[in-house]
């Protein structure tokens, strides 16, 4: 049991403060606290110069302007060196004309990977799996996604989660399955019988007292 914990590190949870770090990146030494006040997507990839990761980095770069409009910064990570990251970023630009616009952590000693539970020995004992941590401006973990080594991430879903979290925070509502900006949102369920009865008179679109939706 202890051996597995040693290999995997701490497994962070939604709602917990994001583990603090100071890391060497392609944009210099960065601390988690440098991102305070912004949303942050911290994501890991297995290795530089690999095919699926290359498609993901191009895809993350393509959504970067949309993320910036939403006040979101991007920070990549793998256990490769800064020199490897720089060489890969330059190679991607040379071959595809896409300039990777965000910093990448060179986590050679696996300090950050272990703090965020990014190493899953069942997949690889040496590489990080494809993790996505969405961290809010108060540095609380709000979403965690894990993908296997063989499956590239879905950028639409990442943008959708950001939109959903920001809508939830702004309006104190929840978002239903497959929600997209502009769709109806879910009104939080009532906690008392009285509130349940009142809920039905408030002009919401209700399937029943516990499932009411409204337009924003």
């Amino acid at each position: 049991m202890e051996e597995i914990k040693e290999q995997t590190g701490h497994m962070p949870r939604i709602g917990e403060p994001a583990p603090a770090f100071e890391a060497v990146t392609t944009h210099g030494k960065l601390k988690l606290e440098d991102f305070k006040g912004s949303w942050l997507i911290l994501f890991s990839h297995p290795a530089d110069f690999t095919p699926v990761c290359t498609t993901e980095f191009i895809a993350f770069t393509e959504i970067h302007p949309e993320l910036q409009k939403r006040g979101v910064e991007l920070l990549g990570l793998s256990v490769d060196s800064t020199s490897s990251h720089i060489a890969w970023v330059r190679n991607v630009e040379e071959k595809t004309k896409v300039r990777i616009s965000f910093p990448i952590i060179a986590d050679l000693n696996k300090e950050v990977s272990l703090a965020y539970g990014m190493i899953h020995p069942g997949q690889s004992k040496t590489e990080t799996v494809r993790c996505v941590f969405i961290i809010d401006p108060n540095q609380i973990i709000r979403t965690i996604l894990y993908y296997p080594l063989t499956t590239g991430r879905n950028m639409d879903e990442i943008l959708r989660i950001i939109d959903a979290l920001q809508t939830t925070d702004k309006n104190a509502v929840a978002t239903p399955a497959n929600w997209r900006p502009g769709d109806m949102v879910v009104v939080p369920p009532p906690n008392t019988q009285e509130m349940a009865e009142e809920r039905l008179k408030q002009g919401y679109e209700c399937t029943d007292w516990y499932l009411c939706k409204k337009k924003l």
């Binding site: 944009h27 210099g28 030494k29 601390k31 606290e33 440098d34 991102f35 912004s38």
Partner: peptide
């Protein structure tokens, strides 16, 4: 420049 770059840059 992005705020995170400035925070780390000013430290440097």
């Amino acid at each position: 420049l992005p705020l995170f770059r400035v925070r780390s840059g000013l430290r440097e």
